[in-house]
Every structure is written in C-alpha cells, then in structure tokens.
Nucleic acid binder design. Structure first.
Length: 428
RNA sequence: GCACCGGUGGCGAAGUGGCUAACGCGCUGGUCUGCAAAACCAGUAUUCGCGGGUUCAAUUCCCGCCCGGUGCUCCA
C-alpha cells in the first residue's frame, strides 16, 4: 500500500481495493495473453493485516521491533548481523548516523526500516494492537509469503531492483522472527533493454503488451522473445527481434502441422514402423531440453535443442525416411517443449481481437496499425470461401485469377501454402 | 564516486582453459513449385569491447581502461 495508491484511491473516491482491482485485472489479462498460468493464490495485502501485525509482535517480543514516538514501528537492523548477505553488501564500514534525514530522527539507526507506519492525518488506517496505521512495504511480503508457504520455502522471485533493500529486509524480518532460513533460492530477473536502451517513458521507448499487440505483433512472438534469453541475462528487446521470433514460432508450428497431418508411410509386413535415427534425435532433444532447463533455467539452450531436432527431422522427412511411428517421440518432444514455452497453440488472433475491442472501449483504436485493423471482421468462413475459389481457378489453370485472390487474402493478413494435401492458410 | 552484473557474427544470443565458437533471424546461391509459400542443402565470426598479465595454451582466469545496466536516498 504505497502513498501513491492511497492518494489516487482517495482522489477517485474509492477504496484501495476497488482502485487496485482494475490494475490487477488488466495485469492478469496480459499474463493470459502471454500464456502465463494464473497463480493458485493471489494474496492482497489489505486482507492480511492481522498476519502482519502478529509478525511484528513476534519481533517486538525480542526487542527487534521497536515503537517510535509517532507510533510507527521500526526494525532494529543492529540485531540482524547477516544483514546484506543477499545483495552482497557490506555495511560494516558505514557509520551510524553519518547521514540522517530530518524526518528520520525518531529511528534508533538511520538504516532501520519501517514495519508499521503511523497514520498521517486523513490517511486510510487500520486499528490494531500496534496502534493505528498501515503496514510497511516489506512486512506485507514476509507475512503473506509465510502464511501461504510456511516459514521456509524454496523460491522467491522478483526484479533485480528489489534485491536491496526489499528482499534484504524481508530476510531480516522473517529470519529474526522464525530463526529459520526464509528462502532457499532467490530468483532475480534482469530488466530488459529496448532497442539497446533502458525502457523509460522519457526515452519514448516504453511499450505495454497492448501497445505491441495493437502494432500487429503477436503475443506468441513476444513470449518467445522474452523467453529466448536466460533470466539472468539482460535481454535487448527489439522490433527486429520480435519479427524474427514471429517467424521462428511459425516455423515450429508449421513443423508440428507437418508431423501431425502428413500421411507418413505405415509399416508393411515384417517392417519396423519407425526410423531409428529420427527417434534417437527426438529423444536426444528431450534430454538436452531438460538438462538445459535444469541448469539454472537456460532457456536459450533449451530452445536450441528443439530447433536442432526440427532441422534434423525435416531433413529426414524430405529424404523420405519419416515413418508413421516416428510421430510419437517427435510429438512428445514438442509437447515437452511447449509445456514450458507455450507458443505452439495459436491464440494470437484471439488476443489481437481482444486488444482491439479494449482499444475501442478506451477510445484508442486510432493507435492500431492499419493492417491490424484490416484483420477485424475477417472470418474463417470468408477466408475459406476465397481459398476454395482460388483452388478452383488453379485447377482450370487460371493462374491470373488465382494470384489475384492470393493478393486479396494477403491484404487481409492471410498467407497461403499449397501442398499435395491441399491449400493451407494462416494469419500473418 | 562505490558495489554488483554484462560487452561474442548484420541483429538477438549460448558456451568453454585446448576439440568444426551452439541456436534463432537475416543475407547469398541451389533443390522443390505454374509462380509463390513451406521445407531442405551449401555458404556467411581465422574470431569473442580495448590494453596488459598468468599459462605449454585464454573468448574463457587476473589487473587496468572504455561502454551499457542495476543498486547505493525516500517510496512501493
């Protein structure tokens, strides 16, 4: 509950809960577009005040938390010698009180941080055993995490900017209260760059997911780009990269289509129904994929394993070596890959439509790229009818008419692929 | 200024004390096709920011410099 939320909610004349709900909903919609699973539990700070209060009380019993003149409660950092262990900071040399702000004089030490904040006049507050006020930022996370996951748990994630002071403070509070290891593995993702520079509104390179969808980029391509670089690495997010990933995703989808839909030779009497080299390659890909993810989530290597397989299997298939029974392992490899990468199922058109509808409600339809707007109202039936008409023209060798229809469809963002099995189409 | 992380082909990026420096995209040529698309094949970094050092051997380890990012104050 930061000052800004409290202020803006008050200005809008609504409660904190109602005010934040809108942003929470938009956030989860975006995650859904990117095929990120919805969390099993979504914890909201306003619903867990008593847990926070009792955690502070536990610290107060040990004199680690103390009450200042104004009714705020602070954490006594001097009582947690390991402070700084996560962010590898050494506070030994810092003189206490060397640099102290005017409004911090109530603290015993400048570095002590707030656990509970006394209310300023007119501010939203909770009446608790600690006195009136609201929780400090760090205590929210410690209290809720331990309430749902226990005193000690495996993974805690966050952006690299939160390592200090937020996560450091979480450790200090939690471990002081429980005398147990709070988190076994910290998972800090690095900020991305946009076109080689940091993303910021003042740089003019600040894009939301919806901005990108309105520009015509696909949700799957965005996901693929974000995932293509290991989380510890600083990803350079570029439009060129997005276009590249669009094509890479398309290649994987086309490959799966090919494996699923082609009529591969069935074994005849006395023959085995699979090519051993293909099965071996698929199994090797699965192994390499798992090993890469097990190695600190090396998504770049994991993804390379799948492309290695795709190239090999395509080549073998072109050479006529693919057999019906090879399908099983190859598709299993794709399934395993997609369980993590989640780009093979094509929901892109749905999310683009969703975003266009949203933009219309917000009066921002003008921000959509013309080719994105052109896809509105292009139904599958309409496409199918044109595709069939073109096939007819092709059969009568009326190539001029066939090409005209192909161009017309291209204008609607539809790409055609002719094959022995008939014409396939896909949204560009 | 200090601390931590990074700087690899046209772009994104993996990786390692010594084996042909992955993978994706792009580009060039070829196969296939009515033409395309898809797919495949071949080629595309004598070289891993710059300078020095350690070593039989460094892109990989150490030191310095340059560049980028994050933190170092409040707030979340």
């Amino acid at each position: 509950m930061d000052d800004k939320i409290i202020r803006n909610a008050a200005a809008a004349g609504v409660g904190i809960d109602e005010y934040t709900r809108k942003y929470q909903d938009a956030f989860f919609e975006d995650l859904k577009a990117l095929d990120v699973e919805h969390p099993e539990v979504v914890a909201r700070a306003t619903e867990h005040i008593p847990t926070m209060v009792s955690l502070i009380e536990r610290l107060a019993e040990q004199d680690i938390a103390y009450r200042a003149e104004d009714g705020s409660w602070y954490f006594r950092i001097a009582r947690f010698p390991e402070y700084g262990k996560l962010s590898k900071k050494d506070f030994g040399g810092i003189e206490d009180g060397a640099r102290i702000d005017l409004d911090e004089y109530e603290k015993d030490s400048a570095r002590d941080f707030a656990l509970w904040k006394a209310p300023k006049p007119g501010e939203h507050k909770w009446e608790t055993a600690l006195g009136p006020g609201r929780p400090g930022w760090h205590i929210e996370c410690s209290a809720m995490a331990m309430e749902f996951l226990g005193d000690s748990f495996d993974l805690h994630a966050g952006g690299e900017d939160l390592m200090f002071p937020h996560h450091e403070n979480e450790i200090a509070q939690s471990e002081s209260a429980t005398h147990r290891t709070f988190v076994r593995h910290w998972f800090h993702v690095r900020f991305l760059l946009v076109e080689g520079r940091k993303m910021s509104k003042s740089e003019g390179n600040f894009y939301t997911l919806r901005d990108l969808l309105l520009r015509g980029y696909k949700a799957s391509a965005i996901r693929m780009l974000l995932i293509s670089v290991p989380y510890r690495q600083q990803l350079n997010f570029t439009f060129e990269g997005l276009s590249a990933e669009t094509i890479a995703v398309e290649r994987l989808r086309t490959f799966r289509e090919r494996i699923v839909n082609m009529k591969w030779p069935e074994p005849s009497q006395g023959q085995i129904g699979f090519d051993a080299a293909i099965d071996d390659a698929a199994e090797a890909a699965i192994k390499k994929f798992r090993a890469a993810l097990a190695d600190d989530l090396n998504t770049a290597e994991a993804r390379a394993a799948i492309f290695d397989m795709v190239r090999f299997v395509n080549a073998q298939a072109d050479a006529g070596k693919f057999r019906a029974f090879n399908k099983h392992v190859v598709l299993e490899a794709l399934r395993e890959f997609d369980q993590i990468f989640a780009v093979l199922e094509d929901h892109d058109a749905d999310w683009t439509r969703f975003t266009l509808d949203w933009a219309e409600r917000e009066g921002r339809l003008g921000e959509a790229a013309p080719e994105v707007l052109a896809t509105r109202g292009v139904t599958n039936e309409k496409i199918q009818a044109l595709v069939e008409e073109r096939d007819k023209a092709k059969r009568t060798r009326n190539f001029a008419r066939a090409d005209a229809i192909r161009n017309e469809l291209a204008g609607m963002g539809i790409l055609l692929e002719d094959s022995k099995e008939g014409t396939r189409w896909k949204r560009k």
